[in-house]
Each structure stands twice: as structure tokens, then as C-alpha cells.
Design a protein around this nucleic acid. Structure first.
Lengths: 186, 186
DNA sequence: AACATTTTTTGATGTATATCAAAATCAACT
DNA sequence: AGTTGATTTTGATATACATCAAAAAATGTT
């Protein structure tokens, strides 16, 4: 079953007409490790789901890459900014493993919202859930030490450690790789 | 005009029936400086607007208050968490000046979403805007030094400096008051 | 104006994390 | 198995910010 529809249904009811319309607009991509899905400056997709694979989102700050999140299977993601503003994201999204991904473009999503206004309930719930996640992320960066943030990460995404290198994790935590290495010594 | 309706209209169209229903459910409060609007553990309100006044949101971490945001006039706010989960917020909201505030309870808002499904468009846009703000906040905490975060704050909310004491601002920035004082020396 | 309270600043010192350089380890390829 | 390149660890030193204590300045109250 179309994994976008499957995810949407977690947030609210979809009419069968809406399901068909979403199905028609869902695109499937097979990507290789290190490929980019979105390069900042382009708006290719709004929401997408990994059927299989692993991705990271990052942006550039003072010439260096800074990771903002990692995505695994059976989650729905996307940058809210392009959906909200219809302008390109500053985020880049890169595959860290060979992946199979299902996506809907921003234009198609906006068409769907127009055709099936009840979809706004799903859109609202998704955005609200993203708010909750982002609030937790802010609080973690605001109040926790690097060691605590590392422990939170392995609690929430335990498979990540064996799938990505420590440089990526350090960047996500906002510390250097050397500091992460020392944290892990214990 | 009802400031909740005024704010909602920035995000999408409201039918006159919806306007009347919102009007009926809007409550106005006059609060004194240092009063609390929400104490964590209670869910009193979903979205609210300050007609006049100033508020801060904070939570407790290791026995100390940590400020997460400041709210001024003509903005709409609220914790998304109670709207999304229907469970109490961990956030406390306190007035920093004598204030006039208009609010809608979580239950009333959910009634409104049921009665006027088109309101979900407004709810989606508000949640998406909150996502954008929270993303910026995370990035700031992730990549900026205390000095840079201070400069961002006075750029974005310049009136704040003359309205709240430095302890509150330091807490928002995630640094001690002493460090903030030294940052400001220059 | 005098006093009490709150807020802000200053000083001395400690700690977490960054930086730079290099070594050690691991993984991929022939 | 040996070579190459990427990843992780270690060491020495620097910097940003915290902590604790106290002084100074600002604000509110009688």
C-alpha cells in the first residue's frame, strides 16, 4: 500500500476519492547512498516517506555542514517551510543508504488541499506533531549537556549509531567529533 | 474587533457563521503583573492573543525556571502540545505586565474544528508558522554563540530589553545572568 | 530623604567544549 | 595480505561560559 496514504491515515480519515487522488500524485524514487534528494534552493517535495533507507537533513553554517535530523523507515517527513511559504528550503536532504522513497510535491499537495479541504485536518495534525518534536529538540539544545543530548539520541533512535558515522552524530549534537569520541569513552 | 478572529483571518477565510461561533467562545481576562495564566498541569487555553501586555513561557529544569519565549501584543500564541494531545502543557505562562488577554479553550477550539471543518486550514497554517519559528529557534541554539543569540533577540524583539529584566533574558538565551552582563559590556 | 529590596555588574576561579595535530583503527579494494 | 582512504581516538592547549561571592546601581516604599 502507498506509504504516504498509510502515514496520512494515522492522522485522520481519508475519503476513497482523496486516496485515489493522493495515489495519482505519489512518486516513487530509488536513490543511491550519498545521492541528494533535495538540494537547498529547490523545492522538489513536501512530504515523503522512506519505504527503505536512511536520510539526513543538513544546512551550511560558516562553511560547515550542520545536521538537523535523521530519518528512518516508517516516518513521514518534509520541511514545513516550503509547504508554508512555497519558497525553497535552506535544508539539504541526503541519503545515507540506498533508499526507496515515496513523495508528493508541494504543488500537488496544495492541489490536494484545494480539492479535498478535509485533508487540512491531516495537514494540521502533522504540523502540530512536528511542533511537538521541534519543541523537544529546542528544549534539549537549551538545557542539556552534550552528554545528555547524546544519551537522548541513542534512546530515541538506537539504530542510528550503527548506521551513520560519528561525525554526522557530533554535528547533530552540536559538538565536535573529538568531544563525542571522549563522551563515548565511558 | 475580537482579536482572536482578527488573528485567525490572517491565515485564511472565516465564514460569518464561524466568526459568530468563535466570538461566542472567546473569553477576555484582565491580569495583573506576575499573575499566572497557565500553570503547568492545567489546560486552560489553546490559542490566545494579548490585546495589551507582556508574557513569558517557562518550565522548570533542575529546580530552576527556564524561559522559552516572550509574547507581546498582536501575536497569536499558545502551546501546541495541549491542542495536539489534549494533555496538559509542561509550560507555565506568566504575565510580566498588567495585561488584557483574549483566549479560546482547547475544548472550544476542538468543537469549532468539528463544527467548521474549514477552520482546519487556519489551524494548519498556524501550526506550520509555529514550526518555522521553532526551526529557527533550534538552529539558533544549535549553531550560535551566546553573543549571537543575544543580538538576534534584540533584533527580533527590540522592545523586550526595556520591558523585562536581564535574568529573564539570560534564561531565554540559555546562559547565566553574569555572562549576559559581560556580553552587554561591549 | 532614608531604607529595604531587587537588579545589574565585577572579580576570581572552575569546567565543558573547541581547536589543532597526530596516531590508531577500521573498511574497501586489488 | 598489503595498500589506500576514511573514521575514530588521543594529547596538548585555548576559549566560552558557569559558579560563587560580593559590590554597585537602580527601584520601590515609608
Amino acid at each position: 500500500m502507498n506509504p504516504i496514504i498509510q502515514q496520512f491515515k494515522r492522522y485522520g480519515f481519508l475519503s476513497s476519492e482523496a486516496e485515489v487522488a493522493i495515489e495519482d500524485r505519489t512518486k516513487c524514487f530509488f536513490k543511491k547512498k550519498n545521492d541528494h534528494f533535495l538540494k537547498s534552493g529547490q523545492v522538489l517535495s513536501s512530504y515523503f516517506v522512506l519505504e527503505k533507507g536512511l536520510i539526513r537533513a543538513y544546512f551550511y553554517h560558516e562553511g560547515k555542514e550542520v545536521n538537523t535530523w535523521f530519518g528512518e523507515e516508517n516516518q513521514i517527513f518534509g520541511s514545513i517551510l516550503p509547504v508554508y511559504t512555497n519558497r525553497p528550503s535552506f535544508e539539504n536532504i541526503q541519503f545515507l543508504e540506498d533508499s526507496e522513497v515515496y513523495a508528493i510535491s508541494v504543488e500537488d499537495l496544495n492541489d490536494l488541499y484545494r480539492m479535498f479541504p478535509e485533508l487540512n485536518l491531516v495537514g494540521r495534525k502533522i504540523a502540530e506533531e512536528v511542533c511537538v518534536i521541534l519543541e523537544e529538540r529546542s528544549i534539549s539544545l537549551h538545557t542539556e549537556s552534550a552528554t545528555e543530548r547524546y544519551q537522548s539520541l541513542i534512546r530515541l533512535q538506537p539504530r542510528l549509531l550503527s548506521r551513520v558515522n560519528l561525525g554526522h552524530i557530533a554535528s547533530y549534537l552540536g559538538i565536535t567529533q573529538e568531544t563525542l569520541s571522549r563522551i563515548r569513552r565511558y
